[in-house]
Design a protein around this nucleic acid. Structure first.
Lengths: 194, 194
DNA sequence: CACAAGCTAGAACGAACGCTCTACCCAGTA
DNA sequence: TACTGGGTAGAGCGTTCGTTCTAGCTTGTG
C-alpha cells in the first residue's frame, strides 16, 4: 500500500467536493476543480470514484450529512431544555455563516435543489440526510417528554425553519433571520410543553 | 415594429428561463436550452439580453419575484385572520408542488444558493425578492394590528419557514412538511396576538 | 419604391466540461 | 532480483458551454 506524501487522498477529495458544492452547487462545481482544490489528480479522483461526478456528489452529500449532524448533536446536548437548545443551534449556524463571509450555508441544499427529480442517487443521499437530522431533533424532543406525534411534527418544522432561515440569512448577509427564527422556534416548542 | 408569429418573444424567454432555473438551477441551465424551450433562437436571446446569461438570470429572478408575490397576495387576502392566511399559503404551495411532480419548488432558491457571493447582479435581484415577500407579510400583520417589531420579525420567520418547508417537502416528496409548517406558523402568530 | 429598424436565424469560436486512457511510481512479497 | 498492484500523473477524447458574428427577414415610414 502506497503511503502517499499527503495521507488519505480520498478524504481530501470528499472534503473539497463537499465545500465546493456547498458554495457553488453541484452543476457549478467541476471535477477538475475538485481535484485541484483537493491537491489530487484527475486520475486519483476516478480511481476512488469510478462512478464519476455523481459518485463524488453522493460522497460529498454523505460527508455533509455527518458534519452537520455533529454540529446539531453538539448544540442539542449542551442545553437540557430543547427549546433553548434549538435557539442555540440557530445562533451557532449564524456565527458559522458570518465567519465564512456569508458563503457557507447549508452544505447540501444547493445540491439538493439542482438534482431533485433528475439524479436519483444524489436525491436519495439528500433524503437520508434530512431524515437523519429530523430524527435527531425528534429524539431530543421525545427524550424531553414530548409525545411522539408532537416531537415528529416539531422536528420537521425545526429542520425546515433552520434550513430556510439559513438561506434567508445568506441572502441578507445578516445573522438576524437565523437568531430570530431560533427564538420563534423556542417559543413554538414551549407552546407545546404545558 | 415586427409582429412576430408568436407574440412577445422576450416574455417567452424570461418565462422559460425562470422555469428551467427553478428546476435545474442557474448553472444547470444553458442559454441554448432556454432558447429552445422558449421557441426562440440564440439571436433573439442575445438581442433582448445583451448582458448574456447573467442578464437572463436577473430577469428570470425578477419574474419569479412577481409571480410568487401574486400567489402570496392571493393567499394573504383571502383570509382576514393572518394566521389562517399563512397556513392557507402553505397549503397552496404544497398543492402546487405536488401537482408539478415535486419539481416546482421556490422559483429562486436554487439560483440564489448557486450565485450568492459570486454574481452580484443576481444576488441583488434575489435580495429584492426576499425583501418584497417579507414586506408583504409584514404589511399584512401590521394591518391586523401587530406592532411594528413583531410584524417584521414574524414576517422574516414566515418567509424563512415557508422557504425551508418547501425544500423539505420537495426532498421528501410529501405535502406534510409544508402543511405542518403552516399550522406551526399560525400557532406562532397567534401566540403574539393576545 | 427604397430604406432603416427590429428581430430572427444559425454557423462558428475558444474555453471548459466529464471522462478515458496509457504510462509511471513505489512499497511489499517471493 | 523480478513481479504485483494500489495509487499518481496528465494528455487527449468528444461534447457542450457562453458568446460573437454575419446574413436575412419583416414591417412601418418617406
Amino acid at each position: 500500500m502506497a503511503k502517499s506524501p499527503q495521507p488519505d487522498t480520498r478524504e481530501r477529495i470528499v472534503r473539497a467536493a463537499s465545500l465546493l458544492m456547498q458554495r457553488q452547487g453541484y452543476e457549478g462545481t467541476g471535477i477538475k476543480q475538485v481535484a485541484q482544490e483537493a491537491k489530487a489528480t484527475l486520475g486519483s479522483v476516478y480511481h476512488f470514484f469510478p462512478g464519476g461526478k455523481q459518485a463524488v456528489g453522493v460522497a460529498a452529500v454523505r460527508h455533509a450529512d455527518q458534519e452537520f449532524a455533529e454540529l446539531l448533536s453538539a448544540s442539542l446536548s449542551q442545553e437540557a431544555d430543547p427549546a433553548k437548545a434549538v435557539a442555540a443551534c440557530a445562533r451557532a449556524l449564524a456565527g458559522h455563516l458570518r465567519d465564512s463571509g456569508w458563503v457557507d450555508g447549508c452544505p447540501i441544499s444547493a445540491t439538493a435543489l439542482e438534482t431533485t427529480g433528475r439524479v436519483p442517487e444524489i436525491e436519495q443521499a439528500v433524503t437520508q440526510a434530512f431524515q437523519h437530522w429530523r430524527d435527531m431533533v425528534a429524539d431530543t424532543l421525545r427524550g424531553a417528554g414530548f409525545p411522539e406525534r408532537d416531537a415528529h411534527d416539531l422536528a420537521t418544522t425545526v429542520i425546515s425553519t433552520l434550513e430556510g432561515a439559513e438561506l434567508t440569512a445568506q441572502v441578507f448577509k445578516s445573522e438576524t433571520p437565523l437568531t430570530v427564527a431560533g427564538e420563534h422556534l423556542a417559543r413554538l416548542i414551549n407552546s407545546y410543553k404545558g
